[in-house]
Design a protein around this nucleic acid. Sequence first.
DNA 1: GACCAGGCACATC
DNA 2: GATGTGCATGGT
Length: 220
Amino acid sequence: MTDSAKTELLEMYHRLFEHFGPQHWWPADGPFEVIVGAILTQNTAWNNVTKAIRNLKKAGVLSCHAILDVPLEKLAELVRPSGYFNQKAKRLKNFCSFLAENYGCDLKSMFAEETGVLRDKLLSVKGIGPETADSILLYAGNLPVFVVDTYTYRVCSRHGLVAEETSYDEMQALFMNSLDPDVKLFKEYHALLVMTGKNYCRKKPRCQECPLLGFGEPAP
DNA sequence: GACCAGGCACATC
DNA sequence: GATGTGCATGGT
């Protein structure tokens, strides 16, 4: 990791923070709700997720035990507004089975695991990939793990910080090797990148017409 | 009506 | 290992 990359990432953070201000992420009521949201928001607008979570709350199905007890079809119906509802109902049950079998449905004991070990275990749950696992670790577990998502790619490639074909792990390493392992910073930075990424084209990450918001230089 | 949204698993080559 | 495809609702 070069010093210039470190400086650049820190500078980008400060400019984004000045522009957008604090984002107060993750919007959820407690760590279990964060995890449910992390699964439900996969490739889905957050607005739809809030509807699904509201349904779960109203039905009293927002706990490990309740999700395990409710029939799959009923669970799918409750999370319908978040899209991919059949898959996501299974994924919620997969995670809760994992939590029940390994930690007696207790998030505190789950997060007591060594971070790297827990990450691998989460990744072994069907329906939890790198971004979902890292969102769980950072936003539910308050562990210093940087979350990479589609917007991280979009913004970083827009600004010529990485090649478009950069892998998730490489992208994550770029941030984690450049920044202090600061949970607050990691949360804020990820949230700010999402805000920024929404202003950039999806199909043309290096589009010259996208706003630069006063930082960095566009890729040549 | 087309396009997009805070991914992931699985099939196939 | 890379590439393609299914999953699905709701907002713009």
